[in-house]
Design a protein around this nucleic acid. Sequence first.
DNA 1: CACTTTTACGAAAACGTTGTAGGCGTGCTG
DNA 2: CAGCACGCCTACAACGTTTTCGTAAAAGTG
Lengths: 336, 336
Amino acid sequence: MKGINMIQLAKELGLSVSTVSKALGDSYEISASTKKRVLELAKKYNYKPNPFASSLRKKKSKQIAVIIPDIVNNFFALAVDGIESVTVNKNYDTFIYLTHENLEREKAVLEHLESGLTSGLIISACTGKDGYGHFQQFYENTKLPIVFFDRVPDLLQFPKVISNNYESTFEATVKLIKAGVKRPVFIATEEPLYTSIERRRGFQAALASHSIKFSDDMILECSDDMDKNYAIIRRLLSGKKRPDGIFASIEKYAITTYQVCKELKINIPRDLKIIGMTNLRTAALLNPSLSTLSQPAFEMGREAASLLIKMIEKKSYAAANDIIVLNNELTIRESV
Amino acid sequence: MKGINMIQLAKELGLSVSTVSKALGDSYEISASTKKRVLELAKKYNYKPNPFASSLRKKKSKQIAVIIPDIVNNFFALAVDGIESVTVNKNYDTFIYLTHENLEREKAVLEHLESGLTSGLIISACTGKDGYGHFQQFYENTKLPIVFFDRVPDLLQFPKVISNNYESTFEATVKLIKAGVKRPVFIATEEPLYTSIERRRGFQAALASHSIKFSDDMILECSDDMDKNYAIIRRLLSGKKRPDGIFASIEKYAITTYQVCKELKINIPRDLKIIGMTNLRTAALLNPSLSTLSQPAFEMGREAASLLIKMIEKKSYAAANDIIVLNNELTIRESV
DNA sequence: CACTTTTACGAAAACGTTGTAGGCGTGCTG
DNA sequence: CAGCACGCCTACAACGTTTTCGTAAAAGTG
């Protein structure tokens, strides 16, 4: 950290520090000519205001935090892209924190951010287990604005950006049924994620609406351990009364299902029809091409960031309790 | 931003602020019993030191910046994952900046960071056009440590983390040739990226080593505009003397090639053999499965971050000019 | 016991901004 | 012409730390 500061600028200009500060801040108190002189000298010396001094004094920063479970996932990568598209225009700097689906890590990040490092948070939560007390706690301690997206704590009163998981999963399941599926299975996360729960509800409602009796073995819970998942899905598809349709509620599960089918030589879509929730660009190129229910990830990130910055900049939004719902997109390809 | 500060802690403890500061910093000047009292009260009030005040006073921060062209790309996402795996342990906060392959944006980010917001930078550059003067300029203005990875400015003396692009592309091209390819085409970026240039060199060297005469039309330059690329690749594959082998030097081009083949009903691998540089997890599930040359993205990120933090924390490394080279991995699948 | 050293703490000055309060001259109003 | 507003600028006190320097008491030394 080097470079020139206001004091030196002021000295060279024969002005006071406050005048320089105000000139740089384009204050009405300063004459146009003085502003010009200040700006020119600042430019000449490539002066950059010290962000720490500024944040300290103003008691706020132009920094936000993004807390997500994973970045090696097209959905979250797209969401970050969407967030950045907003923050870059508003001149906010964006910290990124990955929880790796680990609740302890998520708590640690929040704890860390209680220092006031950032002026707001965008979060996609990593699990619903243990409730969401840490979010509430964080908010009470800091009163900082928080926007959740996708994986939101449904019980808490925070602004949220979500997609229509219930409706779109309903729609997708109906598609499977109409394509002839009699025994669909929903591959779920074992963690009680909000999104997952909504999707599950949509799945069950679709069955009900088509008089298919729901049974517990129509839900297959998978974890974050891909080897285990492989084994679980393999067992499912090797079994005698194996399903003829699968709704994979997250990307990884759809891919694993494909891998298992490839190994077991199960013919998709003849023996098994599949729809996966994913934002994979390569879905259309898989063998066979994968039918997808994809989320408007970029837009979700963008909306979340817009909302957060509104909340940061206008106190009136601080108590905002908006819920923004965007639509998922169903694309039927060869796998159905 | 709220919460308690040192002054209040000191008052309640009947100590001076300096003592509290030193106690929290575990200074040898403070007795064990006093430290204990301070720590306990700090904990009771959930005291968090103000990072701005701290950074201001110490003239350094525990913040680094990651500047990459894109996050919606498995390679960079994995690299960020690798970076984070290090920073999280070292208690650094990580800013993320996306240049979207836009040089002006890259320059703007650097300019912004001249404020000293971060203590170091990890960069994957977006183009070699216009040279790399802005990096040099940034370094001269700030003297901050910078580590480049993957897309590195080959002519500048900065520490770098790269993968063996030349050798591995050589190897991959030889595979194509041995599989019977007579007229290979290398799909290159139009931007003179370091990585791309190395790969191109490896490609040409492989041809030479197998007595295939190189001609300019064996290099097809593509841009960042996917629609244009589609048209360009389509033209290539519709042509009369169309190639029988393709080395796609970046992920997107491999995918587009697949799309074109699908549309033109070109049989892979019979009529066209393909190897793509990519970290796609779904490569094995494509139709046909894609042979890949993949980079150790996570490891590259991890190495870059380790190196950067060493440079930040030990002045001795500041002039380090290390180049760390990791190995790419060639996986031959059905597409060859 | 007279002395040095060590231990444990405090006072105060930074770090670079920003915002408040105030001041001084000029011009305008009644 | 007193009074006032206004335009333009300055002094100074924050913001919450860290660090240097100083010092009183306790402990060690011969």
